[in-house]
Design a protein around this nucleic acid. Structure first.
Length: 466
RNA sequence: GGCCCGUUCGUCUAUCGGUUAGGACACCUGGUUUUCAACCAGGUAAGAGGGGUUCGACUCCCCUACGGGCUGCCA
C-alpha cells in the first residue's frame, strides 16, 4: 500500500460531539504518525438537517483540538453529480436497477409485515428483474442489485472477521427518485475518489460496512481497511446524551481543559499501548495503531481528564499556556485580561501551573496576581488579620523597604521577624497571605511577593496593617 | 422481532492458555510542608452467570443475562 489516507466525515447537524472528536483524533493520529493524509469531508447531503453553523462549529472544534486536516474540507453535497454518475454506471454494469415502487407501497408492505406479526422482512423490489420494456414512465429510484445468497465478510481491524448473510440485506437505494444520492452511495464514492485507504469510524457503521462493501464490489473498486471503534458512553454506561452534561467539544474548552490534555485523554479512551498513560501528541503518533483499539465502549471519567490535563498544563511553556488561557476566557464568555493582568499572570505562571488541573483552577491560584488594590479579604482571610498580626505587618514593611528583592533575602527577613515575636513562620504566613491575596489558600508567600514586586507588596501590607 | 457487536478493580485499561491478574485515575493511610495544592510512600479493589475444550482457562467454543448498534428514498 502506498500512502495512508484517512478521513473524518461528520454530518453538520450540530456541534462537534465528543465521540466524533475522538473518531477524528484516531484518524488524525493514524495518518499523521505514518506520513499519511488526514482529510475532512462534511456529509451534508441531508439538506433539511445540515446547517452552515454546524459546519463552522465542527471546524472550530477540530481546530481547537489541534486536529489539522489536509486540503480543503470536502462538501459531500457538492459532489452529488458524481454520485449520480456512479449510480448510472452501476445501472449500465447491471449491478443496479430502476425501481418504480413508491414510498407508499413500501410503507404498506412494512405495515403489512408488522400486522402479520411476522419477523421484520427485507423489502424485495418487484422491479429487480423486470423487463425494461415494462418500465412505466414514472419517477424511479436506483437500487443496488445486491447478491441474494451467500455472505458478505467484513475484515475489520478492530472487530475482526464479521460475517453477514446476504439474505438479511435488502437492495438499498443508491439514488433517490429525485436524483439525489443516498448516504450509502455517497460515502463509498467519496472515499474511493478521495483515495481513502483506512476507514476509521464509530461502530454504529459496522452494519453499513457490509452494504458498502457491495457497492465497492459492484464498481470493482478496492475495499479500504475498516476499523470500527466502539462508541463513548456517559459515566452511567448509557449512550452519551445531553443529560450527561458536556457532550460538545466546545463545552470542554469552555470548562478550561487544555487541548493537549483532551487529546491525551481521548487517545487513551478505548485505546492502549501497554501501560503508557501520559504522552504528547508526537509520542502518541509514534505509538498509535489500530491493533491497540479496544472492542468495548468506554465511559467518560472527568477526574481522569482533569488529572491528565494537569500533567499537560504543568508541561506547557508559560507563553503558550497564557495564550490558551486567553482562549479559554473568550470561550467561556469571561472578560479578557488587561495588559497588566496579562503581564502579571505570565510572571506568576511558574508558581501556579504545577498545581492546576484546569484553567479556572489556574486562574484561581493566580488570583493574587490578577487583583488590584485595595485587596478584598474573604471572611477567613480577614480573621487572620487580627490586631497582633497587623502590628507585626507594620513592623515588617520598613524592613522590606530596604530589602533585596530575592527569595533568600525575603526569607531571612521573615524568619527574623517571626523569631523576634516568638512565633513560627506559619503564624506569620497567614496574615501575609491575607494581605497579599485576600485568601487563606495561595501559592508560597515568597512567590507572591516576587511576582507582584516590592512596591505592590509593601502597598498591600500597608493597606492591611492600617 | 431479525441481524451484528460488546462484558477484567468504581472508571480507563494490560494480559494475546500457565502471572501473587499489572499500570493509571479516583478513594483511604502515612510522609513532606507556610495555607491550598503539587509531590513521595503504602493500601483497599476485578475476570457477568452457567456449561464445555484442555494437563491447565480472564484468554478458545456454546448458552443465558445485561449493555450497545443496525434494521429509512437519515447520516
Amino acid at each position: 500500500m502506498s500512502q495512508i489516507v484517512t478521513r473524518f466525515a461528520p454530518s453538520p447537524t450540530g456541534y462537534l460531539h465528543i465521540g466524533g472528536a475522538r473518531t477524528a483524533l484516531f484518524n488524525w493520529l493514524f495518518a499523521r504518525g505514518r506520513g499519511g493524509k488526514f482529510l475532512l469531508r462534511i456529509e451534508d447531503t441531508d439538506r433539511d438537517r445540515s446547517t452552515p453553523e454546524a459546519t463552522a462549529a465542527i471546524l472550530q472544534g477540530l481546530t481547537w483540538l489541534g486536529l489539522d486536516w489536509d486540503g480543503e474540507a470536502v462538501s459531500q453535497f457538492d459532489r452529488k453529480d458524481r454520485h449520480a454518475e456512479v449510480a448510472h454506471q452501476m445501472l449500465a454494469r447491471g449491478t443496479a436497477y430502476k425501481c418504480f415502487s413508491t414510498a407508499e407501497e413500501i410503507a404498506a408492505f412494512r405495515a403489512d409485515q408488522e400486522a402479520k406479526g411476522a419477523s421484520y422482512a427485507v423489502f424485495l423490489s418487484p422491479w429487480r428483474d423486470a423487463d425494461p420494456a415494462t418500465h412505466p414512465d414514472a419517477p424511479f429510484a436506483i437500487r443496488m442489485k445486491a447478491p441474494r445468497t451467500g455472505e458478505t465478510i467484513i475484515n475489520d481491524a478492530v472487530q475482526g472477521i464479521v460475517t453477514f448473510r446476504n439474505d438479511q440485506l435488502d437492495d438499498m437505494i443508491v439514488l433517490r427518485s429525485d436524483g439525489t444520492p443516498t448516504y450509502m452511495l455517497a460515502v463509498v464514492v467519496d472515499d474511493h475518489d478521495m483515495g481513502v485507504t483506512h476507514v476509521i469510524r464509530g461502530d454504529d457503521h459496522l452494519n453499513n460496512a457490509a452494504r458498502q462493501t457491495m457497492v465497492y464490489q459492484a464498481m470493482g473498486w478496492d475495499i479500504p481497511v475498516w476499523a470500527h471503534i466502539p462508541l463513548i458512553h456517559g459515566p452511567d454506561g448509557k449512550k452519551l446524551s445531553k443529560r450527561h452534561g458536556a457532550t460538545a467539544v466546545g463545552d470542554y474548552q469552555a470548562q478550561g481543559f487544555p487541548a493537549a490534555g483532551m487529546r491525551n485523554y481521548l487517545t487513551r479512551l478505548g485505546w492502549a499501548h501497554g501501560d503508557d498513560e501520559l504522552f504528547t501528541s508526537e509520542q502518541a503518533m509514534a505509538m498509535f495503531g489500530l491493533e491497540g483499539i479496544g472492542r468495548s465502549p468506554a465511559r467518560l471519567d472527568f477526574k481522569k481528564l482533569e488529572s491528565t490535563s494537569g500533567w499537560h498544563i504543568a508541561r506547557t511553556d508559560d507563553a503558550a499556556l497564557l495564550h490558551e488561557v486567553q482562549g479559554y476566557l473568550t470561550a467561556s464568555g469571561q472578560p479578557a485580561l488587561t495588559k497588566g493582568q496579562h503581564d502579571l499572570l505570565l510572571r506568576a505562571m511558574y508558581c501556579v501551573k504545577d498545581r492546576a488541573k484546569t484553567f479556572p483552577e489556574l486562574i484561581e491560584k493566580a488570583h493574587f496576581a490578577l487583583i488590584s488594590r485595595p485587596v478584598a479579604a474573604d471572611e477567613a482571610a480577614a480573621k487572620a488579620l487580627d490586631t497582633v498580626s497587623r502590628g507585626i505587618l507594620k513592623e515588617l514593611t520598613p524592613r522590606l523597604q530596604t530589602a533585596n528583592w530575592t527569595k533568600d533575602a525575603l526569607e531571612a527577613i521573615l524568619n527574623d521577624v517571626a523569631a523576634a515575636h516568638g512565633i513560627g513562620f506559619g503564624k506569620l504566613a497567614a496574615p501575609l497571605r491575607s494581605a497579599l491575596a485576600g485568601r487563606t489558600a495561595t501559592p508560597s508567600v515568597y512567590d507572591m511577593m516576587l511576582v507582584i514586586g516590592q512596591d505592590e507588596t509593601i502597598a498591600r501590607l500597608n493597606d492591611a496593617a492600617a
